[in-house]
Amino acid sequence: MIDPTTLPQLSALIGDIELRWPEHKSYLNKSFAGRSAEVLTVSEQLSDIVRRLARHTVGGIENLCDDYRFLCESIVLPEELYFRRHGTYRLTSFEDANRECYANAEFMNRYMNGLLVSGVVWDNHAHALAYFVNRYLPRLEPGTNHLEIGPGHGIFLYFAAQSDCIDSIAGWDVSPTSINNTRHALAALGVTRQVDLQLQNLFEVGVANPGGKFDSIVMSEILEHLEDPVAALRAATAWLRPGGLLWINVPANSPAPDHIFLVQSLEHAASIAQKAGLEVVDRVAYPMSGTTLEKAVKRKLAVSCVLTARKPG
């Protein structure tokens, strides 16, 4: 299936997962079966990152694979059941998500570990990252000031740090734990250029400091965690210079315990960006593993909605 001579890290990671979870093999086969060479190349890079980060993780790669299984079976599956029964996400307030998830450090650690591996395995996650690497970063102009809001694992910041067009890189988060995780990940991955990681609340700084300074802002898998994504995009837009780009990756119909805002489709995601005053210049939806976009839309299955939007002016 995956040629270990051309994609050694991906092949090894798949082997690691299969060792810990043999029953997952057919899903893995489906997930990689239709993946293009362009996307597989990014999956190979991310597999290398995962395996390098595993060396700095308690329990190593086995632990990461176990947490990926925990994510699929114990985190997502019960939420999927609720979503199918009721047509909504189970929680709708940040306070509830904070109580159930964010305040539980042990749970969040397993959750985030699982999501790191999902970036390779889940087709929609893999395609969204590949779009960022292969299509978004190359469109940035030389001298770009780049910001990521909620950088999490630091994977998108890592790839941004490889871009010659980016002059300065910043990352903001409201969680000190998350900022520390991002800092450690970038150090473990050998990123030597300066990345300005700050504890910043988007809403507070946006109000206090109107006027854009960034040419590029990334919000990947952020909006579904917020009660008012339009307000968040407006606040982020205030930090863009006129003509600057905002790259948004938001899942639709993707239940999780900390997803509180239900995006229903690519069109819905685009309308949220437009309500925030942005001009959507590119949009694409990537379905979950093992299905087509047509079937995913018909069945309301998870799709990653990827938008490139521009601040008018």
């Binding site: 057919s26 489906k30 999927e80 093992g290 069945r299």
Partner: peptide, 20 residues
């Protein structure tokens, strides 16, 4: 499930909810 191409975990949940 392995006999049916589209019988994955998500479609399994859809099936169970439809049976309910």
């Amino acid at each position: 499930a392995s006999d049916v191409a589209e019988w994955d975990s998500t479609n399994h949940v859809r099936l169970m909810v439809a049976l309910e």
